[in-house]
Simulated assay, not measured.
Amino acid sequence: MNIVLTGSLGNIGKPLAKELIVKGHSVTVISSNPEKQKDIEMLGAKAAMGTMEDVSFLTETFKGSDAVYCMIPPGDYFDQDFNQLEFYKQVGTNYAEAILKSNVKKVIHLSSIGSNMDKDNGQLIAHTHVENIFRSLPEEIKVTTLRPTSFYYNLFGFIPAIKSQGIIASNYGEDDKCPWVSPSDIAEVVAEELEGSFSERKVRYIVSEELTCNEIAKTLGEAIGKPDLKWILISDGDMFNGALSIGLNPKIAKGLTEMQKSIHNGKLLEDYYSNKPKFGKVKLKDFAEEFAKAYNQ
């Protein structure tokens, strides 16, 4: 198959490209960073250098492909002028236009848990809008929507607080249970779906493991030599103010607070539990080794 991947050689893109190439597929990787071209070609893929904002570039790159994998990066949360919702809407619209113009019939869309909701999901509402854009494509275009859960590597964001305060703190925590996922498990599912039948549109969740926040704190704490590490539950107001204090864009801070409130009260996870998939291979104990390396740098 001729497959086009967006997302450059990121946490998902690199293992995905490697797996598809090993399986004999012809892979094109889109990247906006000229420095990535050599790395892409060294994997055995074709590098397509351009941006998600350029519909003509996307259309030309998509032409002749059997399937495309579409994802949107989160953007810079510390950019005070960044409007994540509008950015996602624009890129989603660009993807849809390029898919139509290039006559692609098979699409994998990397969305997110919580994107089934049209309120109370905070910043994840951006994924809701993109899903709606893809859903509006003609029925003959078979779109597989993948909804990964919380990424393990999001836990890196707690390192400064652990070092300065000795705790993890957010407006979900303690005995709240959360599903988590590894990028390599996501890559494996994307590859599986790309090689699938595309007989109909479908939605699939991706998860590696479910753990309470206390269990996460214990595992990470043991990995970094702090076996008594706790994950403290704080108020929504303290969460929002804390996010502002480290320089987050106010809209992002508000969205994160609302999203995490929805984890705490369970709303964000309802559809996931109604359509729960099997667990992937990578467990938190595996990730804890990476976490410890980052913590000790």
Results as ranks from 00 to 15, higher is better:
S164Q: 15
S136L: 12
D175P: 09
F151K: 03
E140C: 10
G157A: 15
E192L: 08
T145V: 14
P183Q: 06
F156V: 08
E192G: 07
F158M: 13
T149K: 05
D176A: 13
Y152L: 08
G157T: 13
G196I: 01
V190E: 00
A187V: 02
S199L: 12
Y152P: 08
P179A: 15
F151H: 07
S197P: 07
A161C: 10
P148I: 04
G166C: 08
I186Y: 00
D176M: 08
S199K: 14
I186W: 00
E139V: 13
K163H: 09
S182K: 04
Y153N: 15
F158W: 11
D176G: 06
E193W: 00
F151A: 06
S170D: 15
F134Y: 14
L146A: 03
I162S: 12
A187M: 03
V190G: 00
N171G: 11
G166S: 08
G173L: 09
G157D: 15
R135W: 04
S164G: 05
Y152Q: 07
N171L: 11
A191D: 00
V181N: 03
I168T: 08
W180P: 04
N154M: 08
F158Q: 11
E195Y: 01
S150R: 10
K142M: 09
V189E: 05
N154R: 06
E195L: 04
F151D: 03
L146I: 12
Y153K: 12
K142C: 05
S136M: 11
S182M: 05
C178K: 14
N171F: 11
R135A: 14
I168H: 07
K163I: 09
V143D: 05
V130C: 11
F158Y: 14
G173Y: 07
Q165P: 02
F151S: 03
T144A: 09
E188H: 02
K142P: 03
